[in-house]
């Protein structure tokens, strides 16, 4: 069954089993491998993407759910067409503070950080605790993620 969705600013028609998680549509069908598989159960945040501008776990969203909707992945923050000043500031802060270690969770962390800063441009530590707790980092780069969110907030 085919579904049409806008992915990173581009219309895509995707022909898959309607219950295929968006995560695997992105990775296997569209070769957008920046979005990671971590748990498959909405417990780790590695697969976070934006659906109509809001952070969601792409392992729980099914192909049929995205019909006619807008999906942004980490690759969308690289393409000039769909990136935003918030995303640019977040990525710059991540590089400036060398946040990443293994880096596997970081696309998801960045999607969440952009989601947070888009809605709350000057988040408090408490806001960060609430908005970022769904994103696991086993390297425990949390200390720098927090600092980088504050750093990006300054630049926005």
């Amino acid at each position: 069954m085919a579904f049409t969705a806008t992915i990173n600013g581009k219309k895509n028609s995707i022909d898959v089993d309607p219950e295929t998680p968006l995560l695997w549509v992105l990775r296997d069908e569209l070769k957008l491998t920046g979005t990671k598989f971590g748990c498959g159960a909405a417990l780790c945040g590695a697969c976070t993407v934006h659906l109509d501008g809001e952070a969601v776990r792409s392992c729980q969203i099914q192909a049929r759910d995205v019909e006619g909707r807008d999906v942004t992945t980490i690759e969308g923050f690289t393409a000039d067409a769909s990136t935003t000043p918030v995303a640019k500031a977040v990525q710059a802060a991540w590089i400036k503070l060398d946040v990443a270690q293994c880096g596997y969770c970081q696309p998801g962390q960045i999607m969440s950080a952009v989601g947070l800063l888009t809605q709350i441009p000057k988040p408090t530590d408490d806001d960060i605790d609430k908005a970022m707790d769904g994103n696991v980092c086993r390297c425990a780069t949390y200390h720098r993620i927090r600092a980088a969110i504050h750093e990006a907030a300054k630049a926005i």
Partner: peptide, 19 residues
């Protein structure tokens, strides 16, 4: 770090990303 840019834009390739 030499790996920061690729790890913040999703282009760093892990085993699972090989296709």
């Amino acid at each position: 770090r030499v790996d920061s840019p690729a790890k913040v834009n999703g282009t760093a390739l892990y085993t699972i990303d090989h296709q």
